[in-house]
Design a binder for these strands. Structure first.
Lengths: 170, 170
DNA sequence: CGTGCTGGGTTGAGATTGTCAACCCAGCGG
DNA sequence: CCGCTGGGTTGACAATCTCAACCCAGCACG
């Protein structure tokens, strides 16, 4: 198997310092138990404390802490609103930074759909809504890998992680 | 702003039960502190207990627990190996299921690169390695959204989550 | 044959984080 | 001025994580 050869080769080459990695940083922001689920709800249009709480079943103190954390990280922003005949309250909306987590959510969703769905199939699918409603597309959407040279639909084993401009080595 | 209208609309429509979601299931497998970092290392060719430990700086008992969990989840498999002049030991290799987490890792990496990289730029980039080494491509790779009708490079706001075959409602 | 080294762990104390339940409080409506 | 509602805070307890110490099988060395 080429499998074994790959491993041996990999073990011998100069290694990128794995602690200096954007993935680790990303996980420090959204890597705990609830963060990504909160972001998922926000993507889905949820914005109020009580709605997050009800839909996720998360403890309120923890939700409070997580929302603060996500606001501090710039993933959500806290905006005042006022229902007619009610005092001012706050809601939590996604920022651009938060919206950019959508591919991550989709990748996780796709993986869950492939390996963890129950018999009836995936409970949620992602579809294409074109901005112009006249010719709605509505086809299922997937994530594909594409390289700058225009090669598209790369299988995942044709990609590798290489040192970037900010790389450090062991 | 259309932003506000979207939220209101979203709040009023029939909602997918968020607990019956592949994402939540996916997170229950790889959602804790170290799992994805372990998988990342595994993708990178790391397979041995001590190597994971050294590269991640994770406590050995926790690594032990996580590796067992990932094996139980089918993300890694435990295979015996024997170095010459040494006794039999075990290493942890990615399964297909584990390899399929690569898009998730890439999405997270891309997000981290965009928002969390330091001045020098991202420490790691993903490149295209063609199987046939003769015409190596080596261009940077990115994840793009594509729908079944062939629309490609969808902006994330042109996709939405819709009920799938296994959907439940609130 | 005893002694130590090395990879791959286990055990246990203490800090951190999460859960659950109770409580708070501002302001509207009655 | 009473209670209800949304959006929290507080505190007891449980589960997890971190850190440090220890273990143990088998090879290598003397």
């Amino acid at each position: 198997m080429a499998d074994q050869a790959d491993l041996t080769e990999a073990r011998e080459q100069r290694r990128i310092d794995p602690s200096n990695c954007s993935m680790a940083r990303a996980l420090s922001v959204v890597g705990e138990r609830w963060s990504l689920l909160i972001v998922r709800e926000a993507v889905d249009g949820v914005s109020r404390f009580g709605d997050f709480r009800a839909r996720l079943g998360i403890a309120s103190n923890l939700l409070s802490t997580r929302l603060d954390g996500l606001v501090a990280a710039g993933v959500l922003r806290r905006v005042p609103y006022q229902e007619p005949g009610d005092r001012q309250r706050f809601e939590y909306r996604l920022t651009e930074k938060g919206r950019d987590l959508r591919p991550t959510l989709m990748a996780l969703l796709a993986w869950g759909d492939k390996y963890l769905a129950d018999e009836q199939g995936p409970p949620v699918v992602v579809r294409h809504r074109v901005a112009d409603q006249a010719h709605g597309c509505d086809e299922p959407v997937s994530l594909v890998l594409e390289c700058a040279a225009g090669h598209t639909h790369l299988p995942t084993d044709e990609v590798y992680r290489a040192p970037g401009p900010g790389a450090r080595f062991l």
